[in-house]
């Protein structure tokens, strides 16, 4: 047993030594990595990244951070929340597996999003030890999200495929612009929830991959190089740009998701804790699913 432990530790050290020796950035590859010398046509990703990061990324994140909640505050004040009876019958919507997977992802996001914002606005926190700690937390929370993102993708994909209800739902913005309780065309998940699902899972996977690229920085994976055809630094630049872009989408929809579950539909958050949705809520907000359940005699 000891021998194996020793061997695995020794191989770890060897692996990290090889890591350091074959730098993809600062050794022989440095020439490919340096932008703009003579004849090699550059993709111009360096200036593009510099321009975006210097002038736009933090500003857009600030706009999302303030703008999205502001719109919802206005919605809450003008139109107000939807209130459904919590005394009626209940419909079982989320299995225990669904709920565990969702909760792990939820906790990960609760760590990932504030730590990401703190890094984006790092200068206002003075940088240094505190922001460094937030950066490490951002990396740790990625691991738990990485574990559940594929189960989450698979467990809901059947219900998340687009259908005609989604177009109708989009046309009336899910009925959230009126105070009336009229049945809204939607299956188990409405078009808004579906958008969030695809951004959170596929977008989340892009976030993990681009984040890992930036975290490991100097690595040599033949497949990545042959697939992208990019030099290591250009790969990092693409990763940074994509990470910021998808970050904006994920954050904006995350805020929406929280607003819907906590404020816009009173008490809706309980469904992901207990697994049961209110019958009246399903009848109105997921009318197609309600009809289907009724036809199958499940209610």
């Amino acid at each position: 047993m000891k021998k194996y432990l020793f061997l695995s530790i020794a191989s770890l050290f060897l692996a990290s030594a090889a890591f350091a020796a074959d730098s993809q950035i600062w050794d022989a590859m440095r020439i490919q990595n340096i932008y703009g010398y003579g004849q090699v046509e550059s993709l111009g990703l360096g200036p593009l990244f510099t321009m975006l990061q210097a002038n736009y990324f933090a500003q857009i994140f600030l706009a999302v951070l303030i703008g999205v909640p502001a719109v919802f505050l206005l919605h809450y004040l003008v139109i107000g929340p939807k209130v459904f009876s919590h005394d009626g019958k209940k419909i079982y919507a989320f299995s225990i597996f669904n709920r565990i997977v969702h909760q792990v992802a939820a906790i990960s996001f609760i760590v990932l999003i504030p730590t990401g914002f703190i890094m984006t606005f790092g200068s206002y926190f003075g940088g240094g030890e505190f922001v460094r700690m937030m950066k490490d937390l951002h990396g740790i929370a990625t691991i738990s999200f990485g574990i559940v993102v594929i189960p989450m993708f698979l467990m809901w994909i059947k219900d998340m495929l687009p259908n005609f209800d989604d177009i109708k739902w989009m046309m009336i913005v899910g009925g959230y612009l009126s105070k009336e309780k009229k049945p809204v065309p939607a299956g188990k998940f409405n078009a808004g929830q579906k958008s969030w699902y695809w951004i959170a899972t596929l977008g989340g996977m892009v976030m993990i991959l681009t984040g890992a690229t930036m975290y490991f920085l100097d690595f040599d994976i033949e497949m990545v190089r042959s697939m992208t055809g990019l030099s290591q630094i250009d790969l990092l630049r693409v990763a940074a740009i994509l990470h910021a872009f998808f970050g904006m989408l994920v954050v904006a929809l995350f805020f929406t998701h929280v607003y819907m579950a906590v404020f816009a539909i009173k008490g809706a958050i309980h469904s992901i804790i207990t697994g049961y949705k209110e019958e009246e809520e399903v009848e109105i907000l997921h009318s197609s699913w309600y009809k289907k359940l009724k036809k199958e005699g499940k209610i």
Binding site: R30, T50, L236
Partner: peptide
């Protein structure tokens, strides 16, 4: 260096590949 968080953005912006990151933290953090 007491303010730097080792994010790597300066390296992506640099035309000369100048910034470098010693891996001195736990788990090979930059």
């Amino acid at each position: 260096k007491d303010v730097c968080i080792g994010c790597g953005y300066c390296l992506y912006a640099c035309p000369f590949g100048a910034p470098q990151f010693p891996r001195d933290g736990a788990f090979g953090t930059k």
